[in-house]
């Protein structure tokens, strides 16, 4: 009996170690891709290796926090189909407050760690001084980005009230946004810039604060204070999605039996 128990524990430990190793290698791979790119090309539109690493670190740590706090919303269609949402609605607290803490998954800390490490190293190599302005610029991006990612999860969840099936329409924006945020907004076509500045403002909250932080000239003709508008833009975006979610709940008809 004891032997079986130990064996059972060990098999979990083995997969746990594999999991950590997995994330470790994936981080290394992400980093190698950026490094190889800069072996072939000296710069991306005037942005250097470590500046790109910073963007990567910012994006992954914000996504990790957003996933830790709201990823359960991605399973909304399943929750609705199983009729579990009825149980959520009869709880005396807001459905969001009830659902969101269930997102917590220990392994997401790996992504957070890789993001923090990448940002840390880039700060070191770029000799960024820890002044109030710089810290404010970083926090502006970071928290705005988290709010936008959570809003996108919420938008996906709200859409399931109509589609019932799993709908991944907003995934293009979430994961497309993560992918996009790895490089400066200036490299993209005009329509992509407009999309990520005004409609899904991921580009807005990353590009302006970061450009100011790295003293870039090209701000796409925007004034410098745009950087500090980021949190307001993010909150406004959340507000719109929140209304969409409320309309969704009102539209919700139970599927359970």
């Amino acid at each position: 009996m004891i032997e079986a128990k130990i064996k059972g524990k060990m098999s979990y430990q083995k997969s746990y170690i594999l999991e950590l190793l997995g994330y470790f290698v994936v981080t290394g791979i992400d980093f190698a891709a950026i490094y190889f790119l800069f072996e072939s090309f000296p710069a991306v539109k005037g942005w250097s290796l470590w500046e790109i690493v910073y963007l990567y670190g910012l994006g992954s740590s914000a996504l990790a926090i957003a996933q830790l706090s709201g990823e359960v919303l991605e399973d909304m269609s399943l929750i609705i189909r199983n009729g579990e949402f009825d149980q959520v609605l009869i709880k005396p607290i807001s459905p969001l407050l009830f659902l969101m803490p269930q997102s917590f998954r220990l392994d997401r800390f790996a992504r957070l760690a890789q993001g923090v490490l990448a940002s840390g190293f880039s700060f070191y190599y770029l000799n960024i001084i820890f002044s109030w302005t710089n810290v404010a610029l970083f926090l502006c991006s970071f928290f705005s980005l988290i709010i936008i990612f959570i809003s996108l999860f919420l938008a996906n969840a709200a859409t399931s009230f109509w589609t019932i099936q799993s709908s991944e329409v907003f995934n293009a924006f979430t994961y497309g946004g993560v992918e996009m945020s790895k490089f400066p907004l200036t490299i993209y076509k005009r329509w992509m810039q407009v999309l990520f500045l005004f409609f899904i403002p991921i580009g807005f909250v990353i590009f302006f604060p970061t450009s100011i932080l790295f003293e870039k000239e090209n701000l796409l003709n925007f004034p410098k204070f745009s950087a500090f508008l980021s949190p307001f833009i993010a909150i406004a975006f959340f507000g719109v999605i929140w209304v969409y979610w409320r309309v969704g709940i009102r539209h919700y008809q139970s599927t359970g039996s």
């Binding site: 594999l18 999991e19 190793l21 997995g22 994330y23 290698v25």
Partner: peptide, 16 residues
């Protein structure tokens, strides 16, 4: 192994 999530992450990263 019971939980192959780690191996999956690793293997996907490599092929990707």
């Amino acid at each position: 192994i019971e939980n192959a999530r780690g191996l999956k992450t690793l293997s996907t990263g490599i092929i990707y």
